[in-house]
C-alpha cells in the first residue's frame, strides 16, 4: 500500500520535476488573484461611492438644480448597467468574451484574465460596500450634518470607518470566491494551478494525487485568507464592549 503511494507520488511530483508545474501554476493563480483583487476593490469603491452618493443626495441636488445632479445621474446609470451585465452573466463567458472579442488581438492572456476577473469582482465588491453604507443608521448621517459636516466629511470620518468594519466578512468572502473562481483561467490557455494539476493528470494518467494536491493548495490559501480576516476583525472590534 505504502509502496504504491510512494510510486504514485514520485510519478506525479518528482519525475521530470513535475512539482515545479504546480509551483508555476500557483504563482499564476496568485498573480491573477492579486491584480484582480486590486482592480475589483478599486472599481467596487468607485461604483459604491457613485451609487450611494446619488441615492443619498439626489433630492437635495435636484432641489438646488445643480449641474452635478445630471453628471451623477449619468454615472449612476452607467454603474447600474455595469452591475446588471456583470452579475447577470457567467464569469467564464465574460472571460471568453474578454479574450476572444474585446482583446482579440492581444497575446497577453494573463493580463486579460486579470482584467476580466477584476471587472467581475468589482461588481460584487461594489454591492457589498453599498450594502455596508446603506446599513449605517441614518442618524449617523444626520448627526454628521448637524455638526456642520458636508457629505464627504460625514462619509470620511463617520460612515466609512464603520462600513469597513461591517463589510469585512462579506469582503473576505468575495476574495475567497475570487481566488477559487480564477480556476477557470485555463479556458483561455492560462496555466494556472488548476490547469497544471490537470496537465500532470493527463501526462501521468493518474488523477488522485495531482487533483488532491491542487485542492489542498486552494484550501490552504483560503484558510490563510480566513485567518487574516479573523485577525483584522478582532483588531477592529476594539471599540465594542
Amino acid at each position: 500500500m505504502f509502496e504504491k503511494w510512494k510510486a504514485d507520488f514520485t510519478l506525479n511530483f518528482i519525475d521530470n520535476d513535475r512539482w515545479m508545474m504546480l509551483v508555476r501554476g500557483l504563482i499564476a493563480t496568485l498573480e491573477i488573484t492579486a491584480v484582480a483583487l486590486i482592480i475589483g476593490v478599486a472599481i467596487g469603491i468607485v461604483v459604491a461611492a457613485v451609487r450611494s452618493t446619488y441615492d443619498k443626495n439626489k433630492d437635495e441636488m435636484k432641489r438646488r438644480g445643480t449641474m452635478s445632479y445630471y453628471v451623477l445621474w449619468v454615472l449612476n446609470l452607467i454603474c447600474r448597467i455595469y452591475l446588471t451585465v456583470i452579475r447577470g452573466t457567467p464569469t467564464v463567458v465574460q472571460l471568453l468574451i474578454a479574450y476572444f472579442i474585446i482583446f482579440a488581438s492581444s497575446t497577453n492572456s494573463l493580463g486579460v484574465a486579470m482584467f476580466a476577473f477584476g471587472l467581475n469582482s468589482g461588481a460584487y465588491v461594489a454591492e457589498i460596500i453599498r450594502g455596508g453604507i446603506m446599513s449605517i443608521d441614518v442618524g449617523q448621517f444626520e448627526a454628521g450634518s448637524s455638526l456642520g459636516f458636508h457629505y464627504v466629511q460625514t462619509m470620511r470620518y463617520v460612515v466609512v470607518p464603520q462600513v469597513i468594519k461591517n463589510v469585512l466578512p462579506a469582503l473576505f468572502n468575495e476574495f475567497i470566491v475570487l481566488i477559487k473562481e480564477t480556476s477557470v483561467a485555463g479556458y483561455i490557455g492560462i496555466e494556472d494551478l488548476t490547469k497544471m494539476g490537470d496537465l500532470i493528470r493527463s501526462r501521468t494518467f493518474s488523477a488522485f494525487m495531482p487533483l488532491l494536491a491542487v485542492a489542498g493548495i486552494y484550501l490552504v490559501l483560503v484558510m490563510g485568507l480566513t485567518a487574516l480576516d479573523d485577525r483584522l476583525e478582532r483588531r477592529l472590534r476594539k471599540n465594542e464592549r
Binding site: 443608521d137 442618524g139 449617523q140 444626520e142 448627526a143 448637524s146 470620518y157 463617520v158 470607518p161 464603520q162 468594519k165 471599540n239
Partner: peptide, 13 residues
C-alpha cells in the same frame, strides 16, 4: 445650530 437627537447618534467608531 446644535442638535441633540432622541437616539443620541454618537459616533461609535
Amino acid at each position: 445650530m446644535g442638535m441633540v437627537f432622541q437616539h443620541f447618534n454618537l459616533f461609535p467608531n
